[in-house]
């Protein structure tokens, strides 16, 4: 059973997922594949409802870099947990394209990866789990220091050391 966690809370998904061949419903938030977005961009924007785009792991988000301000959700798919392209995409979406909406990890998403995903900018995860929230809590507690600056805005250990020196 797949569960959606957003901003550390269990969430009912307000987006209806639309397949490539599905008709776009008149009302309601929709999550569409890239092809649908490209073919029906104007129509989707005219609806005045929230829109999300679902990108497969070989679809570089650069394609929608200019559109991110029109989107409420970007879902990046992990076809297997071993496919790490989504981590780079996430950083680009957040840091380079400036997307501030919901960035959701979908597909083969493992508990053990959530802290990495959080660090590169995901704030929502679709996971297969009975007790996803408890698992997220465990994963979130794993680390309190990081070497790298990343998309979550948390200070790296080098930055913390500099702070410490300045004030310490």
């Amino acid at each position: 059973m797949s569960t959606l966690i957003k901003d550390n809370k269990l969430t009912e998904d307000p987006f209806t997922r639309i397949g490539v061949d599905d008709a776009i419903p008149a009302q309601g938030a929709v999550l569409v594949p890239l092809a649908t977005w490209q073919d029906h961009r104007e129509k989707l924007l005219r609806r005045g409802e929230p829109v999300g785009v679902w990108l497969k792991s070989d679809e570089h988000p650069e394609i929608i870099a200019g559109d991110v301000n029109h989107l409420q959700l970007i879902a990046l798919e992990f076809p297997t947990f071993r496919d790490g392209r989504g981590y780079s995409y996430a950083r680009l979406v957040r840091e380079r394209y400036g997307f501030e909406g919901e960035l959701r990890a979908v597909g083969d998403v493992l508990l053990e990866q959530l802290h990495y995903m959080g660090r590169v900018g995901f704030n929502a995860f679709e996971v297969d789990s009975e007790d996803a929230l408890a698992e997220l809590e465990i994963a979130a507690r794993d680390f309190s220091v990081w070497y790298q600056p990343s998309a979550d805005g948390r200070a790296s250990s080098a930055q913390l050391r500099t702070e410490l020196k300045r004030h310490g």
């Binding site: 981590y87 780079s88 995903m117 660090r119 990081w146 250990s157």
Partner: peptide, 14 residues
């Protein structure tokens, strides 16, 4: 070393 340890972007390389 510090840059690469637990690097969140590059822990699932090809």
């Amino acid at each position: 070393r510090q840059y690469s340890i637990l690097n969140p972007e590059f822990s699932y390389l090809p």
